[in-house]
Amino acid sequence: MSSGLDRRALVAALVARRGSALLLAGLGSPAWDLAAAGDHPQHFHLWGGMGGAFAMGLGLAIARPERRVVVLTGDGEALMGLASLATIAAQRPPNLALLVLDNRVYGETGGQPTATASGVDLAGIAAAAGFPATLRLESPDRAETALDLLLAAPGPVLVQARVDHRPLPLVLPLKDAVAAKHRLRAALGVEQERCP
């Protein structure tokens, strides 16, 4: 399949423009994509907890209303976390944006089709839930529009980007979640926990 956007180029463009935004990657290919775009304390990569990326982004967005939070994740992970689209729509965090890198397959497990391969419209689901801004990104000439939405539009935002499914170099992010959390909290100036 080669009818979609180059996922690595899209994520690299997001990272190049992110400014102070915090980027949270769901497990599998999106985590490798974010790692390939360069490591940074503002980035956090999940290696597990499938279905939890949207909810984790919501928590971070609530905690840091002054920062943009962008979750990038795959269509399989997004489908497992569909309930969170309702939760997020009800909370309406203006600083949260979700980017679904939709290759229509479970890419880490052998390329089995996901529900989006049958036409399930994640952007449509988000719009129906009440997201004020959604977009189906199908061609590279609209990538800048998608990035504008992800980084600046009043949220919550969901962009469903149709991306290629093809072999890519594996770039692994920081595996130690304890180290990753401490460096993100340090980047945000959060003090170490003390007993209340």
Binding site: G59, L60, R67, K181, L188
Partner: peptide, 9 residues
């Protein structure tokens, strides 16, 4: 997941 994200912030 939500509480982990919140605590990160």
């Amino acid at each position: 997941a939500l509480l982990a994200g919140a605590w990160l912030g």
